[in-house]
Amino acid sequence: MYYGFKVGPFARMTYLDGTKTFEEAIATDPKYEQPMMVRASTDFAYSQIEDALAKGHISQSHYDKTVALIPLPTPLAPNISSDDVNNVIVGINNKMEYSIDESTTYLPYTTPFDLSGNHTVKVRVMAVSGVSNSSLDTVLTFTTNPVTPIAPVVTNDDVTNTVTGMTTGMEYKLDSAEYVAYDATTFNGIDFSGEHTLLVRVSAEGINPASADTTLIFTTN
């Protein structure tokens, strides 16, 4: 292509000064037309190109072709964050779009949506036709939230020194001892007569922590 010493001056005389028309430049060599529009799209401000059209220095056709060549800016990635407890995106708005996990399709953001579980979300500012490209992505990671079980429903009979409601998946702590996983045979062999404090809770499992304790008190009969 002709990006020689004449392209720049021809573009300036045509767009800015109005002292040379496209027709005159093309008469010199038809191959100057495209390079002149490319030079104008990169060297001149959008307002200068609009002014050239308004003053009749260039035609509507050359204006449209030149504007189409202007490189659009790519905005920075949006300043947003993940709330991994409430499973929502903080700072997202309706000028943004997102894709979830492996999807290559971006959806426009409209209302908050639930991101419970394990997800990777890419968020970007949407492109504006003729103004800007889509922004770079901000990548957010969501993880499965731990669930704390409620304290187990177990009761004791301080007369018969027995405990009702124990099941597999629970653990207990008798007085100053450590927590022990519930086993029916072992547990049924414990003598609760006398002064004792028994703490019972649902055992931790995976990412889920142990529950709060249910406290059972035994006294000397």
Results as ranks from 00 to 15, higher is better:
1 M>W: 10
1 M>H: 14
2 Y>T: 10
2 Y>N: 11
4 G>E: 05
5 F>V: 13
6 K>W: 03
7 V>I: 06
10 F>C: 08
11 A>E: 08
14 T>V: 08
16 L>P: 11
19 T>H: 07
20 K>R: 13
24 E>Q: 12
24 E>M: 00
26 I>P: 00
27 A>R: 06
28 T>R: 13
29 D>Q: 03
29 D>L: 03
30 P>E: 02
30 P>R: 01
37 M>H: 01
39 R>L: 11
40 A>T: 06
43 D>K: 15
46 Y>H: 13
47 S>E: 10
48 Q>L: 00
48 Q>K: 05
48 Q>C: 03
49 I>H: 01
51 D>Y: 03
52 A>I: 05
53 L>K: 10
54 A>I: 06
54 A>S: 13
55 K>R: 15
55 K>C: 06
56 G>Y: 05
57 H>Q: 10
58 I>Y: 00
58 I>E: 02
58 I>C: 03
59 S>E: 04
59 S>F: 03
62 H>S: 05
66 T>W: 04
66 T>L: 03
66 T>E: 02
70 I>F: 04
71 P>E: 09
71 P>A: 10
71 P>F: 11
73 P>K: 12
75 P>K: 07
76 L>V: 11
76 L>F: 10
77 A>V: 07
78 P>M: 01
78 P>I: 02
78 P>Q: 00
80 I>D: 06
80 I>C: 04
82 S>T: 13
83 D>N: 13
84 D>T: 15
84 D>V: 15
87 N>H: 09
87 N>R: 09
88 V>R: 15
89 I>D: 14
90 V>C: 00
91 G>K: 03
92 I>V: 08
92 I>N: 01
97 E>L: 09
100 I>Y: 05
101 D>N: 15
103 S>T: 06
103 S>C: 07
110 T>D: 15
111 T>Y: 13
113 F>S: 09
113 F>K: 11
113 F>Q: 11
115 L>F: 09
116 S>P: 02
119 H>Y: 01
126 M>S: 09
126 M>T: 07
136 L>K: 14
138 T>S: 08
139 V>K: 08
139 V>S: 03
139 V>F: 06
142 F>C: 05
144 T>A: 11
145 N>I: 14
146 P>T: 12
147 V>W: 02
149 P>I: 07
151 A>K: 14
152 P>R: 04
153 V>Y: 02
155 T>Q: 00
155 T>G: 00
155 T>E: 01
155 T>I: 04
155 T>A: 04
155 T>W: 02
158 D>M: 08
158 D>L: 08
160 T>N: 15
161 N>R: 11
162 T>F: 12
163 V>A: 07
166 M>W: 01
166 M>F: 02
167 T>F: 00
167 T>C: 01
169 G>N: 07
170 M>K: 06
170 M>E: 05
170 M>G: 11
171 E>F: 08
171 E>S: 04
173 K>F: 09
175 D>L: 07
175 D>Y: 01
175 D>H: 06
182 Y>T: 07
183 D>H: 08
187 F>T: 03
188 N>G: 13
193 S>V: 09
194 G>E: 10
199 L>S: 14
200 V>R: 05
200 V>S: 09
205 E>G: 13
207 I>S: 14
208 N>W: 03
210 A>H: 11
210 A>D: 13
211 S>P: 00
212 A>L: 07
213 D>G: 08
217 I>Q: 14
219 T>V: 15
220 T>N: 15
220 T>L: 14
221 N>K: 14
